[in-house]
């Protein structure tokens, strides 16, 4: 879904180098408009995760500037970083879930950090968990769920606070074909509701038949496919 030219993610000549001479990104330019669903592909180690990590300020670029929703990330103070991360929902390849806590507790965490009380967040959590098809497992511990179910919990947690931007880092990397299709469908549904999505994957099958924009990260450069 495209809803105009208003860019929400913008990279201007972004560089990321690691000592001594590893180049993850070299003068990368990119503009993603509000409401776009963009695939980011490239072989393992191409720098997809590094690029995503820079977008939620878990890493700093060594050059250039990154602008998220009109804000240059280099101008953000440490105390402003939580505000950025509330705008950007992140789905991790390794899920980053609290395995000894329940589905409800994991998903509710994103709302708890906003200061919402249990009675305020309860209905929202139930609604989102139902949306990812896990309402019958709301009070199960995450460790008791399958890999696909865990990934859906991670998605629910990333979107429960309705962030305008969703970054998905290989969200289907650990899933079988059926679960992968489910996750992609879920992401498309979120996009249809207005979220801008940057979906990093090395699985070319996910976008071969799609009308979506596809970017390839190669030798530190971003190419349009």
């Amino acid at each position: 879904m495209l809803s105009g030219d208003q860019s929400v993610i913008e990279l201007r000549e972004v560089q990321k180098k690691y000592a001594p001479d590893i180049v993850a990104l070299e003068e990368a330019d990119l503009t993603i408009s509000k409401g776009e669903f963009v695939f980011l592909t490239g072989p393992s180690g191409a720098g997809k995760s590094t690029l995503l990590r820079m977008l939620y300020k878990a890493e700093e670029p060594t050059g250039g500037s990154i602008i998220i929703d009109g804000v240059d990330l280099s101008s953000l103070s440490k105390s402003q970083i939580p505000q950025l991360r509330r705008k950007v929902g992140v789905i991790f390849q390794d899920f980053k879930l609290l395995f000894n806590k329940t589905v409800f507790e994991n998903v509710a965490l994103s709302l708890e950090v906003l200061g919402l009380k249990k009675n305020q967040l309860s209905s929202r959590v139930r609604q989102v968990v139902e949306g990812v098809g896990l309402s019958d497992k709301l009070h199960r511990k995450v460790v008791q769920l399958s890999g696909g179910e865990q990934q859906r919990v991670a998605i629910a947690r990333a979107v429960v606070n309705r962030p305008p931007i969703i970054l998905a880092d290989e969200p289907t990397g650990n899933l079988d074909r059926k679960r992968t299709t489910e996750v992609v469908a879920l992401m498309e549904e979120l996009n249809a509701r207005g979220a801008t999505i940057l979906f990093a994957t090395h699985d070319e099958n996910l976008f071969t038949d799609t009308h979506r924009r596809v970017l390839r990260l190669k030798d530190g450069k971003i190419e349009e496919l």
Binding site: S79, P82, Q83, R85, R86, L97, L109, V113, R157
Partner: peptide, 16 residues
């Protein structure tokens, strides 16, 4: 540490 990292990633402030 895992829980703290996750809290940071979902936008928890240092105060929280």
């Amino acid at each position: 540490q895992d829980e703290i990292e996750i809290m940071r990633l979902v936008g928890a402030t240092n105060g929280f």
